[in-house]
Design a protein around this nucleic acid. Structure first.
Lengths: 229, 229
DNA sequence: GTCTATATGGAGATAGAC
DNA sequence: GTCTATCTCCATATAGAC
């Protein structure tokens, strides 16, 4: 991120750029929108836009950051209203998708690494790392104080696992062409139940022997995704 | 893909472009290599390169296609030499990684959609669809006639599941900075065993009740990834 | 069918005005 | 600190030579 421009004027300009970009992305898609288009709509020169956002990708990242703000607020409400893990998980994902809905048509045309912050393939590590941390923290809130049943050894990995699950659902949703994305809704119903049961099953004594194997694999994975660009 | 240029001259030129591109990608990375660089090294004008490959991405795809040729041949050998599922699976993935090894340094800098052919986020559907089909077919050969134990209902989904597994391992490998990518080797050892056990467990009577749920989810997923760009 | 020369339009960089 | 004008370099397109 750029060295935070926090003067009132800079804030206004940043916001103008973000508004212009969002409107244009929705009207004509990401690729079809040029930096000149964005600058024009925001009544700026191209250079001014680059003064506030180093790249076009960084504009997308900033827009994504705004949806995280909303998601964090929503999840605070949600966790207050119910301790039921399945309800919380479903609610958090539903809200995230609703939030992204206006962007769905052009999200598919973004390069994968832009959409999946923290993907190991992502070229801009530091910016997206912050986004990923925030997204994973949201999943932490979903778990914390919930009714979730799971073998204790798995607790440290839940955030990451649920975040990965959310990524998977979201990329399914992006290319879901069923009316109202009903297939995604059905997939959510099925898999939220499945995930909940799967976690519960880690406590069954006979199956517990496999936990060690799973944990080793998870631990190998930990840090990797963190450190990786 | 372009309407197959199959004259001897075209074949020679295509190959020259591919050789030049591969060498340059390895020397200085994907982004740092310009189409002019590639054309120069192949002693061609830029336009000639575009005559044979519509885009820079298509060159990468063609290079990837060549590794699939090798993988197909290798797996034919492998399946002849052993029916053991775990050995076959491990062998197929090891070979694929060995094949890709010279490209590892720059693969991380490719946009995600270039690397993962058939990713739902991929913008060029038809070309990558063919690659994905081939990659999945290889996993089909691994399963066919092997010692794998799994509930019959899952058979139609094995190709896709194993392909996804391979994609996951590969993206881990791309950003694995441990010496000789030993972490990937350890992850493979753990997860190949895990996957094999997981499949076997689908036949345990008490757990079989969950299979319906899992299958419904898998079936929802089927077709989606296919159809999706 | 194969290829060269040249053109176009966009992302991002920069010099300096205010 | 904020922004304008202008520049460079690249992917990709195209007209037409051979």
């Amino acid at each position: 991120m750029l060295p935070e421009r926090n003067t009132p004027k800079a804030k206004r300009t940043r916001q103008a750029v973000l508004n212009a970009a969002l409107a244009l992305f929705q009207e004509r898609g990401f690729e079809a929108t040029t930096m000149r288009d964005i600058a024009d709509r925001a009544s700026l020169a191209v250079g001014a836009t680059y003064y506030h956002f180093r790249t076009k990708d960084e504009i997308v990242l900033a827009l994504y950051g705004a949806t995280l703000d909303a998601a964090e607020a929503w999840v605070r409400e949600l966790t207050r209203s119910t301790p039921d893990f399945a309800v919380r998980l479903r609610g958090a994902i539903d809200q995230a998708l609703a939030q992204l809905a206006p962007c769905r048509p052009f999200l598919g045309h973004l390069a994968g690494h832009v959409f999946i912050p923290g993907s190991p393939l992502s070229p801009f590590s530091s910016e997206s790392a912050a986004m990923r941390e925030r997204a994973m923290a949201i999943m932490g809130s979903v778990v914390e104080g919930s009714t979730l049943k799971v073998a204790g050894e798995f607790r440290p990995h839940l955030q990451r696992l649920l975040w990965l699950y959310q990524m998977g659902i979201t990329s399914y949703w992006i290319s879901d062409r069923s009316p109202q994305q009903r297939n995604t809704q059905r997939l959510l119903s099925l898999t939220v139940a499945l995930v909940t049961k799967l976690f519960a099953v880690t406590r069954v004594p006979i199956l517990r022997q496999a936990n060690g194997l799973i944990l080793s694999a998870l631990e190998l994975g930990t840090g990797r995704l963190e450190q990786a660009a």
